[in-house]
Amino acid sequence: MKLEIKNLLPVYFEEERKSTSEIWGKERSFSNGDLVNIVAPSGTGKTSLIHFLYKMRESYSGSILYDGQPLSQFSKEAIAALRKDHVSIILQDMRLFEEQTILENLEIKRQLNPYHPQERIIEMAKRLGVDHRLNALAKNCSYGEQQRAVIIRALLQPFGVLLMDEPFSHLDHANAQKAIDLILEETAGRKALVLFAELEKATGFPATHLYHL
């Protein structure tokens, strides 16, 4: 899947940002297999960018295109289809159903468009070291455990684009590396584009493109 951004800028940013950023106000095009690392210190609009790309917010000027289609023209139903089949996301603020168990949270996502069988959930949970927490309520899990569940959740659907907003902020280095390895393995199978926004340049992530926001 091809993702293009053209002259993008949050409406709440000054025009000058365009001169210092490698993303804002520029034309960029990404396609299948690209591993894009966006380095963005606090306050540079990292979460805004991810939200714009997932159409969770639309407070920007410029345009975002998926396979040449402007995102702003997608209907509510088309957005739902895009999220179900083509674009997956790992959000910084996680967003789990707190009253459901981790396994239920993952099943809710998996059943929407099953890419993997249920056993794969357990395999991935084992690899990330959260298999013993699958039956715990989300609200009773630590941030680290929740973050690993969110990573697994993002990998349960088919996708051509994976958006990641500080996906390892609550993980130690060893666990983060395990997660990166799993993500790379899953995206390689799908020949997907990964857009990884992080505070600093990610170690252990073999980026093909590196941009400073």
């Binding site: 139903e77 739902a80 999220r83 179900k84 996301i89 159903f97 996502k109 659907q157």
Partner: peptide, 15 residues
């Protein structure tokens, strides 16, 4: 909150 999350996950509003 729950409905919003379902929509975020890709559930169709019509469905």
């Amino acid at each position: 909150q729950n409905l919003e999350l379902l929509l975020t996950l890709g559930y169709s509003p019509a469905w």
